[in-house]
């Protein structure tokens, strides 16, 4: 609320200032023209489809009749849908936790190296993030392959029983999460490494003088200094992971027994493959709540930055 009024005041102030001189008005016109392509793109291909999907979700399968919340009622009665909800949450939450933990550990390890060595290691560790995810998922699929499985060969080599990576529903859930963690952890690593480098070394020095051990330095210096970046990366990743499509689609296509479906793959299956566009739109709408929550948090942060950008003094 307070922020909204601040922004309003700024806009009003700018409008008044612009009205003051013809030059400023001309400037504002040119500025608007420069932004026009962006505005058109966002309105036509993001905002309009988003609202259109709300409308679509209220139609029947052949899109001839308005059914209100009928599609939602239909979904709520289906066991598969609740499984999708459950798996989406399991998938996103556990993948994000592991990505963040591994990224945090890796960033610390890299940060402890002498600066000259960091570059090469960082370069190697970021490779999973650079490969198109659809392609690396294909490779994982091949590694999970039951009869030729490279992973099972390794497991058997150290004396374990072979694992039905994608054949057993619960192992399949584990497998899709593992691929997501493999793909996303380097992103967290890079973010946290950049943040670690911006923590002033004096803080650690004075902590050391005060007799803090490594754990205390982590808890009382590093974590408070990195709190913002951790919150933002986790939020970003939560959105992206909730909306993940490629990995599940290629590895399992939702099987076995629909137990690995997430919202995106289930929406694709219903909307595109089974040709029930309203039902598919309905499923994809369930990604909205997480988005809305994230938006509120991020907005608080973004407001501050866009004010800085707009050059508002004070």
């Amino acid at each position: 609320m307070a922020q909204a009024s601040v922004v309003e005041a700024q806009v009003k102030e700018a409008a008044q200032r612009d009205r003051g001189s013809g030059l400023a008005a001309r400037r504002a016109r040119i500025a608007f023209l420069f932004c026009l392509p962006l505005i058109l793109l966002v309105v036509a291909l993001v905002i309009y489809p988003a609202f259109y999907s709300l409308y679509l979700a209220t139609l029947n399968k052949s899109m001839t009749r308005f059914v209100g919340l009928g599609n939602f009622a239909f979904l709520f009665r289906r066991e598969t849908f609740w499984m999708v909800v459950e798996q989406s949450i399991i998938f996103a939450v556990s993948a994000v936790i592991f990505k963040a933990l591994i990224g945090f550990v890796l960033a610390h390890l890299l940060h402890a190296l002498p600066p000259r060595g960091q570059r090469a290691w960082r370069g190697l560790l970021l490779v999973p993030w650079v490969i198109p995810p659809a392609m690396s998922t294909l490779v994982w699929w091949w590694m999970y392959e039951p009869s030729y499985s490279a992973l099972n060969w390794l497991l058997m080599g150290i004396g374990f029983a072979p694992v039905p990576w994608l054949g057993d529903p619960y192992w399949a859930r584990f497998s899709v999460i593992l691929v997501n963690v493999w793909y996303g952890a380097p992103f967290f690593m890079i973010m946290y490494l950049a943040a670690l480098k911006s923590v002033p070394a004096e803080l650690y020095e004075s902590a050391e003088i005060d007799g803090a051990n490594a754990w205390q330095k982590l808890v009382y210096v590093t974590l408070p200094m990195l709190r913002n970046i951790i919150a933002i990366t986790v939020l970003f990743s939560l959105i992206v992971t909730f909306a993940n499509f490629d990995i599940v689609r290629i590895l399992t296509a939702g099987g076995p027994r629909d137990m690995t479906h997430v919202f995106a793959t289930y929406a694709f299956k219903l909307g595109i493959e089974s040709n029930d566009i309203p039902l598919g739109a309905c499923v994809s709408l369930f990604m909205f709540p997480i988005l809305a929550v994230a938006a509120v948090f991020i907005l608080r942060d973004v407001h501050r930055r866009s004010r800085e950008i707009a050059g508002v003094s004070g």
């Binding site: 806009v11 612009d18 400037r27 608007f32 966002v42 999907s53 950008i309």
Partner: peptide, 25 residues
């Protein structure tokens, strides 16, 4: 600056957050 440019900068960032899996249907 022009009328609403601050809001637009914020809006641009929010659109970045809308995943394509929500919009393809």
């Amino acid at each position: 600056r022009f009328f609403g440019s601050t809001a637009l900068a914020t809006g641009v960032f929010l659109t970045y957050l809308i995943p394509e899996t929500l919009l393809f249907i």
